[in-house]
Design a binder for these strands. Structure first.
Length: 411
DNA sequence: CTTCCACGGGAACACTGGGGTG
DNA sequence: CACCCCAGTGTTCCCGTGGAAG
């Protein structure tokens, strides 16, 4: 086949997408359905900034995909716009604490917005703090700091939050207020009471979307994303229903819609059908797991591989550790302590790759009961892609001494 | 009531990649 | 240049603790 013909064929297929970008999580729409209440609430608090007062700090709660970030960014953008018109200096800074997750780096980013030259590492933290403080205090202005996923920050100490929440008393010209976004309702319990009261002056809750609301969101975006008539009428309700089961996650719903359409496109279908959605549902989950497993640190991979080899439900830490030690020797890796391996297993649990629950087996002590919750063979092959684990390819469990545990025999 | 095993918190340490000073 | 300081990360060491079988 001639090359030109090859592309001709592909081009003759009518594209399903008009604009794929509007379905991506990074896209912030101009209209946010079913969030009027929250938007108004936030605007009423932040309007103080336009009047030249310091707005209250805000805490925003809600599960993932309930529009917290989108609303915060949207209101922030509008606020900046209004302030600009009124020549009222106001800056909204957005920081995602999952990416920028230490106090040094938060301050480094903040100071960076005010043209302060700071090395990305090396300085004492208080010096960076002072630099940031001086940076904003050069003129009279309001600075709103949006800290997305603050719970990730708090896990490493609440010092920055403490400092930021009382920074106003050290400023002569500028004013600072903080918007914290969290999907963990309990995170505030870990805070110092002083930080808690100051940060939570105002609280806004984002309830999950129900299936109908998700449908509205999807329809609105679908109008921008697709050519007319490329969606089966079943598609949007189904995406909405699936996502509603996952605690009303709009991001998930949009992902589902986008992937469904991509799959339809790839299978050269002119329209997106119900089957594509079901297919997409599986694909998203599998892709996620493959990606997580692939990017695991090597030691975690070894631990996971041990469990995959054992290939049984209700493993105990002791068993896994014995196999793990053996694998370490075979691959020439450093052997970590059991204490550390317990942590690695807990991390795998958090990622949803394994299930681990602590059980007490009476006379036979306390342990974790672990089972791998991903398809064994696929997990195995992804793990073996790592060049450091290559040599484990043909390994059999019999080469590993199976511990004699009477414990396991009766359940 | 004892006993047992591993859980999991916390301190301490090692190491990395950067800075500033003499 | 040598040297020490700093934040951050991953690890080891130490140890108190849970809780049902025995």
């Amino acid at each position: 086949m001639e090359l030109s013909q090859l592309f001709e064929d592909l081009l003759s297929i009518k594209p399903i997408f008009v604009n794929r970008e509007v379905l991506r999580p990074s896209y912030t729409p101009d209209y946010l359905p079913h969030r009027k209440e929250q938007i108004n609430r936030m605007a009423t608090i932040l309007v103080a900034a336009i009047r030249g007062e310091t707005p209250s700090n805000i805490l925003i709660y809600g599960k993932s995909g309930t529009g917290k970030t989108a609303v915060a960014k949207y209101v922030g953008r509008e606020l900046e716009r209004t302030c600009e018109v009124r020549r009222n200096p106001c800056t909204v800074l957005y920081i995602n604490c999952e990416v920028v997750d230490t106090q040094y780096r938060v301050l480094y980013h903040l100071a960076g917005h005010f043209d302060r030259e700071i090395p990305s590492t090396g300085w004492p933290t208080d010096q960076v703090y002072a630099e940031f403080k001086n940076g904003i205090d050069t003129e009279s202005r309001t600075v709103i700091i949006i800290l997305d996923e603050v719970d990730k920050l708090v896990k490493k100490g609440d010092e920055i939050l403490y400092n930021l929440s009382r920074i106003n008393s050290e400023l002569d010209n500028a004013k600072v207020s903080i918007i914290g976004i969290s999907n963990d309702l309990k995170f505030i319990e870990f805070l110092d009471p002083r930080v808690r009261s100051s940060l939570g002056e105002e609280e806004i809750i984002f309830p999950p979307y129900d299936a109908n609301q998700l449908r509205d969101i999807l329809e609105q975006r679908a109008n921008m994303a697709f050519r007319q008539g490329t969606l089966d009428p079943e598609v949007i309700p189904l995406c909405a229903a699936f996502a509603a089961q996952e605690h009303g996650d709009a991001r998930r719903a949009l992902d589902l819609l986008r992937v469904s359409a991509e799959l339809a496109e790839r299978s050269q279908s002119d329209i997106v059908k119900e089957e594509h959605v079901r297919w997409a549902q599986d694909k998203i989950e599998l892709d996620r797991i493959v990606e997580v497993v692939r990017t695991l640190p090597t030691q975690s991979k070894l631990v996971l591989y041990s469990m995959v080899l054992l290939n049984r439900k209700g493993l105990t830490t002791g068993e896994v550790y014995k196999v793990y030690k053996d694998l370490c020797h075979k691959t020439d890796m450093a052997v970590l302590t059991q204490r550390r391996v317990t942590d690695l297993i807990s991390e795998l649990d958090m990622l949803g790759i394994v299930n681990a629950i602590v059980v007490s087996k009476g006379r036979y002590g306390r342990t974790k009961e672990i089972s791998v919750s991903t398809p064994t063979e696929q997990t195995k092959s992804v793990l073996l892609e790592d060049y450091r684990l290559k040599s484990l390819g043909g390994i059999r469990l019999k080469s590993v001494s199976i511990p004699v545990t009477q414990t396991r025999l009766y359940e």
